[in-house]
Computed example of a mutant assay.
Amino acid sequence: MTHQNNSNAPRFLTLVLFAALLTGCVAPSPAPVRDTTPPSSQRGAGAAPPSSTGQPVHIVRPGDTLLGIARNYGVQTKDLIAWNQLADPNQIHVGQEIFVGPPSGTTVQPIAISQPIEMEPGMESARATVKQEPRGGKQPYSDEAWAAIQPKATPAAPPPQPSPAPNAANGSTTSDPVWLWPTNGQIIGTFDEASNKGLDIAGKPGDSVIASAGGKVVYSGSGLRGYGKLVIIKHDANYLTAYAHNQQLLVKEGESVAKGQKIAELGSTDADRPKLHFEIRKQGRPVDPMKYLPAR
């Protein structure tokens, strides 16, 4: 029995060695490989693959816009237009190659764009609007402020006429209008070109103020500081009269008035007492009314 077991031992060892040789001849299976390359949507600026010209290029995908491509690669839209010579930047199509970098050693001249670039929703720039409001309140007196309340249209100058002979009685000329005193009352302020551009005539509130001559009302309001409620009448191409400090105005701008017509009621607006401030202006310059009004 012992002899039989000893004869089988070499045979068993031979089988074990043969199995080991077979196992060593079998090729091991490969380990799995993980692709760690980020998708194109996660690549930063300048990650586009280069083209044959050396410029980085982007292949247009569904939903791409020129603005979105510019943002993705950190460039400006106008540069994409120039690098790709796009006449219509709104017409890009899927599969089109778009250069997203400048060509090396080449200067690309900008071309005219036939249509504006369409902005993505929410990217429209807000335009600031300037709100202009009418100027309100009274303007302080100045020659410019006075001129501003006069009619803008200037009538054509009449043909030159021979100068009429002066009227020795009041210093006026025979072609001047015949003037009336605009109100009754005591003169409390006389003409001074530097400090008083007319006459100040005292009165009671509500006294009648009349047109010194016939003409057209060119201003009726209270927009000139220091004059209160003011009426200005244009008589011809040379003369205007002004009636200030009224408590009530009875005529409107554009209205024609007759000589002696009541145009206002005397008052004290912008004044220290009830009075009428009366001016005569010749060709825009104040003159002494005492040289034009009849003697009292």
Rank of each mutant, 00 (worst) to 15 (best):
Q161D: 03
Q76S: 13
I113P: 00
G189V: 11
L86A: 05
G68Q: 15
P159D: 08
G44I: 03
I263V: 11
D272N: 13
P102R: 10
P159R: 06
A264H: 05
V218F: 06
R71G: 12
P28V: 09
C25W: 09
G44F: 04
A213N: 13
P205V: 12
T241S: 15
I280V: 09
N167I: 14
T183K: 01
G267V: 05
T37F: 09
I210L: 12
S208W: 02
P30Y: 04
G267Q: 06
T37R: 14
P182M: 08
Q55P: 04
I187G: 02
G254I: 08
G101R: 02
G74L: 04
F18G: 09
R71L: 12
Q283D: 12
R296E: 06
P38K: 07
P49M: 13
E133T: 13
Q132M: 12
C25K: 01
V100P: 03
Y292H: 07
Y141E: 07
K234E: 14
T65P: 04
K259E: 12
L13A: 13
V251N: 01
G206C: 09
K252F: 03
L230V: 05
S212Y: 02
G136T: 14
T129G: 08
A202F: 01
T106F: 11
S212V: 07
D288Q: 05
T36Y: 12
F18N: 02
E193K: 12
S41W: 12
A45Q: 04
P294C: 03
Q91V: 11
H235S: 07
G137V: 12
T14R: 14
P160W: 05
